[in-house]
Amino acid sequence: MKKVAKRGQEEIKDRAQARRDEIVEQAKADVEGLREHGFYHTGIDSSKGNETYQVKVYYVEFIVDSKERKVTALVRRLNDKTPRHVGRAKAAPNDCFNVHIGKAIALRRALGLTVPDEYLNAPQPTEVRVGDFIEVTLDSGEIEKKPVISLKAGSLNAHLPGRIIQYPSHYAKIIDDSREEVCG
């Protein structure tokens, strides 16, 4: 009976991870589409968004603060030196930060567009992957945050300055699954 329950839990975890992966890809495509919309203004629905979204050429700049787990979208019109609209997104304390979802939320807010519920309520990642940042609580109670550089069955390797530490994967809490070294 325990094997059946464990297999059911694994299937739920796999579905949650697959759904999160879909939402991250959707967010990436959404940001790209909204940026392109600022240049070309095709297929405009004037009942949505603010005036800049509806009728103006605009440019987008993102400020990402991974330590604070937040993203800011700055929207400028063609000849503006300062942003006309600003949107912000910040991960909740117990949520895993993802820069792609954050960019989509922040940009939609800056343009006066509705933020899809799936961005705001994306499932937490269930699978540690190379490039994720994890939080590990040591036996001493100290908490360390570090990037995952490799995985082996049941364990992961994280990088510390000058050395590599191996941890059992069940000790790790994923705190950032953006998998980007430089966010822009």
Rank of each mutant, 00 (worst) to 15 (best):
L34T: 01
R19A: 10
G49S: 05
K28C: 12
E25K: 11
I23T: 03
D21F: 07
A29Y: 10
F39H: 10
N50W: 00
E32Q: 04
A16T: 03
F39Q: 10
A18Y: 13
E36K: 14
R20A: 05
R35D: 01
I44M: 04
A16E: 15
S47V: 02
F39K: 14
H37G: 08
D45V: 09
A16V: 06
E51T: 14
E36D: 14
S46C: 07
A16W: 01
G49A: 14
E36T: 05
E22I: 06
K28H: 10
K28V: 13
E22G: 09
G33R: 05
Q26A: 12
H41N: 13
Y40G: 02
L34R: 04
G49P: 00
A16I: 06
A18V: 07
G38H: 03
E32H: 06
K48F: 09
R20F: 02
N50T: 11
S47P: 02
H37P: 08
D45N: 14
N50L: 06
A18D: 09
A27S: 07
G49W: 01
T42L: 03
R20S: 07
A18W: 12
D30H: 02
V24W: 04
H41L: 15
V24H: 03
R19W: 00
I44K: 13
A16M: 11
H37S: 05
D45I: 04
R35P: 13
L34K: 03
H41A: 07
E36G: 14
F39G: 09
D45W: 00
R19S: 08
A18I: 12
Q17C: 05
